[in-house]
């Protein structure tokens, strides 16, 4: 009897929490939809949503941000995958150092990083030009902790030493081991590392705005002062897009019930717990 009432009150409490917190989290999103569909004199209109397609600055900035996201993913993969594989296989002694460096950006807020990197970007601009795509360099640094965690989880889940020994003894070169043995085996981890990187780059504002590059977030922010309707409409679209991305990742991730703390490795910014 006591157990039954206990279970019922637990269930009531659970739904109470879900509803109250759910309202708090959903209300601003619904308000955005309401705000962006306001027409003249209390009518509904999709004017603001149509405006997205007509604003050239906005479209340019979306293109810039998408290119940046793609370049950052490539840069991140090229930098991390060979290095981490190599460290796992050949120089485990430096593993802690690589981990420490990769997690360091969590301790250095973006607003701090931008202070230190501004003088370096004077050189970057001098050497490779002042395209917003140069942000790729600092964005690769920014996504390091999240990408590291995802890839480290992937490498930890397979027996990388045995696999590479087998490949090597069959005559594979190191690049072949990497491309034909390691990468196909950690594909899921690479996808989640990439998606998290894409989401971070598309949402990044701090560094782009203070280095004066027109990425999508910077333009949305400026637009908010000029035409709030369009800015809010784009924001809704961007949030939905990111949500869909992350749901897709959730379904791609292999399910390992035995290791619950690896469930959300890519999205979790919490880090050290595994090896601290």
């Amino acid at each position: 009897m006591a157990a039954v009432t206990g279970r019922r009150s637990r269930s009531i409490l659970r739904w109470l929490v879900l509803v109250v917190v759910g309202i708090y989290l959903l209300l601003p999103l619904l308000a955005m939809v309401e705000f962006s569909t306001r027409g003249a004199g209390g009518t509904r209109s999709l004017e603001a949503w149509r405006g997205i397609g007509e604003d050239d600055d906005l479209l340019d900035s979306i293109l810039t941000s998408v290119e940046l996201a793609a370049l950052t993913v490539v840069g991140m993969l090229v930098l991390l995958v060979p290095t981490m594989t190599w460290v796992h296989l050949r120089v485990p002694a430096v593993r802690r150092i690589v981990e420490f460096i990769c997690l360091l950006p969590l301790t250095i807020p973006a607003i701090v990083l931008v202070v230190g990197i501004a003088p370096i970007y004077a050189w970057v601009t001098y050497l490779v030009g002042d395209s917003p795509l140069t942000l790729t360099f600092v964005y690769v640094v920014l996504v390091l902790p999240y990408a590291y965690r995802a890839i480290d989880g992937g490498l930890g889940a397979i027996d990388i030493v045995t696999l590479s020994e087998a490949a090597r003894s069959l005559g594979a070169s190191w690049p072949q081991v990497l491309v034909r043995v390691i990468i196909p085996n950690i594909r899921g981890a690479l996808i989640s590392a990439s998606v998290v990187s894409i989401a971070l780059v598309l949402g990044e504002f701090t560094i782009a705005s203070l280095l004066n590059f027109d990425t999508v977030q910077v333009v949305i922010n400026l637009l908010g002062k000029r035409n709030a309707g369009i800015a809010v409409a784009v924001s809704v679209a961007a949030l939905l897009f990111a949500f869909v991305l992350l749901v897709v990742v959730a379904y791609l991730e292999p399910r390992r019930r035995s290791a619950p703390d690896d469930e959300t490795p890519a999205t979790a910014p919490a880090v050290q717990e595994a090896r601290a």
Partner: peptide, 25 residues
């Protein structure tokens, strides 16, 4: 799945857009 994915978006993607969300509210 939906709560975890939505949390990922709101916790790490929001930034500027969350400011607009609250101005719209």
């Amino acid at each position: 799945r939906c709560v975890v994915a939505a949390s990922g978006v709101l916790a790490q993607f929001g930034g500027v857009m969350l400011a607009f969300a609250f101005l719209a509210t």
